[in-house]
Amino acid sequence: MFNRKPQDANFSVERLFKDIVKAFPPNLIYNSYTSKFKSRGFWSRLYNTVEAFCKQGDVNHITGDVHYLCYLMSKNKTLLTILDCGNLKRLNGIRRTIFYFLWFWLPVKKVAMITVISESTKKELLQYVRCDERKIRVIPCCISDDFKPSPKAFNSSNPVLLQIGTAYNKNLPKVAEAISGIPCHLRIIGKLSEEQISQLLAFDISYSSVSNLTDLEIIDEYIKCDALIFASTYEGFGMPIVEANITGRPVVTSNILSMPEVAGNAACLVDPYDAEDIRKGVLKIFSDEDYRKTLVANGYQNARRFKPAIVAEQYVELYKEVYLLSMHSK
Results as ranks from 00 to 15, higher is better:
residue 197 I to Y: 00
residue 207 Y to R: 13
residue 179 I to D: 01
residue 247 T to C: 09
residue 231 A to S: 15
residue 187 R to K: 15
residue 204 D to I: 04
residue 212 N to W: 07
residue 262 V to N: 07
residue 229 I to W: 07
residue 170 K to D: 03
residue 273 Y to R: 09
residue 258 S to D: 13
residue 192 L to N: 01
residue 212 N to R: 10
residue 196 Q to L: 12
residue 167 A to S: 14
residue 257 L to Y: 15
residue 234 Y to R: 08
residue 200 L to N: 01
residue 194 E to K: 11
residue 195 E to L: 12
residue 249 R to I: 03
residue 229 I to E: 03
residue 237 F to L: 07
residue 263 A to N: 03
residue 254 S to D: 01
residue 273 Y to Q: 06
residue 266 A to H: 10
residue 203 F to K: 13
residue 216 L to S: 15
residue 280 K to V: 02
residue 233 T to H: 03
residue 216 L to V: 12
residue 190 G to A: 09
residue 247 T to A: 03
residue 188 I to M: 00
residue 184 C to H: 00
residue 265 N to R: 12
residue 210 V to E: 14
residue 180 S to Q: 13
residue 269 L to I: 02
residue 187 R to I: 00
residue 218 I to M: 15
residue 221 E to A: 13
residue 171 N to Y: 10
residue 167 A to Y: 01
residue 218 I to R: 12
residue 265 N to V: 03
residue 272 P to K: 04
residue 262 V to P: 12
residue 252 V to H: 02
residue 266 A to F: 01
residue 168 Y to S: 11
residue 279 R to E: 02
residue 262 V to F: 03
residue 175 V to D: 01
residue 223 I to Y: 15
residue 259 M to K: 05
residue 261 E to C: 15
residue 239 M to Q: 14
residue 210 V to S: 15
residue 216 L to I: 07
residue 189 I to P: 05
residue 191 K to D: 02
residue 279 R to P: 02
residue 220 D to Y: 07
residue 253 T to N: 14
residue 185 H to G: 05
residue 183 P to F: 01
residue 206 S to V: 09
residue 263 A to Y: 06
residue 220 D to F: 08
residue 181 G to N: 12
residue 237 F to A: 09
residue 174 K to I: 12
residue 188 I to W: 01
residue 233 T to Y: 02
residue 181 G to L: 11
residue 277 D to S: 07
residue 275 A to E: 10
residue 192 L to F: 11
residue 201 L to N: 14
residue 206 S to N: 14
residue 173 P to K: 04
residue 214 T to I: 08
residue 279 R to W: 01
residue 218 I to G: 06
residue 274 D to K: 11
residue 220 D to G: 06
residue 205 I to E: 07
residue 168 Y to F: 09
residue 174 K to C: 10
residue 217 E to V: 06
residue 186 L to M: 12
residue 166 T to P: 12
residue 210 V to K: 15
residue 172 L to R: 03
residue 217 E to W: 06
residue 187 R to S: 12
residue 267 A to T: 08
